[in-house]
Design a binder for these strands. Structure first.
Lengths: 162, 162
DNA sequence: GCTTTTGACTAACTTTGACTTTCAATACAA
DNA sequence: TTGTATTGAAAGTCAAAGTTAGTCAAAAGC
């Protein structure tokens, strides 16, 4: 693996795969030691690769007997999952979060690789022309509209521009 | 070789030829060092010699473990149609025209029904919040960005993992 | 005049480590 | 016993440093 955090991501995902449950518990420090990295690197990976949007939940406790629990978030299957994302995308969303959701939908098999690409394009480069300050809300509107489409809502259009 | 960028072009093409895959991954800085040029020269070559029109696609990532991936696109099989639409969608496009193009792509089997829906959503409802005067150009930017993405993906229906 | 070459500056990600906070267990005092 | 202070073992935070790649415009070659 060419970089640490990808390796850590894979390692954790493998643990999740082999675990009987849909969560695992680790000790941050010993995992870091096993993987030969500083403990805070684990936090970085959890933030960037196991975010809520990507379909994970991280709980932890400090002190003696502390732990980090990584839970596969139940986001529903099929329609439910898309609905969940739709309701969680409010009036504004950062690029990273949007891409997190798209990543999750793709991983869950709810959109194909090509569909995921179209979503990513629309909320990525597709809004790069919008002034920085308005970009997050532009993204949210486009993403929500596309999600509605995935849910099968008809799109109003009377042939003229509304 | 009379100039640097031709040499770099040949070098990269040779790498593509000998690679088993239809893409290669390089590290910009080390390639530059191997070839005895400044790193930004690589970008220049990629822009001028490995452009979309010439049948290539370039993706990259920065930071630790960063890379530049150069993909040779398969030609034919209707790709020309996507390219045509891409080049015809200039800096602004009406909703009706956009829908027309999307419909055509769908009829030609270049995008699936769902993909067409996503395109329609993005350039329809997705830009309804934009001030009317700017809507056509917003539409064009989003559509072009999405089409660009389509050019880099395998065809629908026979799709493999990206 | 066009293309090519260069390099200073910028942006995006990653890695590290010093410092902080929280918690459980234990020790101690009343 | 009961409440409280101490302590050590976790995990969290944050900013600096490191590692890539991108941009842009000036300079250099046709």
């Amino acid at each position: 693996m060419k970089n640490l955090c990808d390796a850590i991501e894979q390692y954790i995902k493998e643990m999740l795969r082999t675990a009987g449950e849909d969560f695992i518990e680790i000790r941050r420090n010993s995992l870091a030691e096993q993987l030969g990295c500083v403990p805070s690197q684990i936090n970085y990976v959890l933030e960037t690769r196991f975010s809520l949007e990507r379909g994970y939940l991280v709980e932890s406790r400090r002190g003696g007997g502390g732990y980090v629990r990584i839970v596969r978030r139940r986001v529903g299957t099929g329609r439910d999952a898309v609905e969940t994302v739709f309701s969680e995308v409010r009036d504004a969303i950062s690029r990273a979060k949007a891409e997190g959701y798209i990543h999750m939908l793709e991983e869950e098999g709810l959109v194909s690789a090509r569909e995921a690409m179209l979503l990513r394009r629309a909320v990525g480069d597709g809004v790069s022309w919008v002034a920085r300050v308005d970009r997050d809300s532009a993204r949210a509107r486009i993403l929500r509209s596309m999600l509605l489409g995935l849910l099968g809502e008809p799109q109003p259009y009377n042939g003229r521009e509304a």
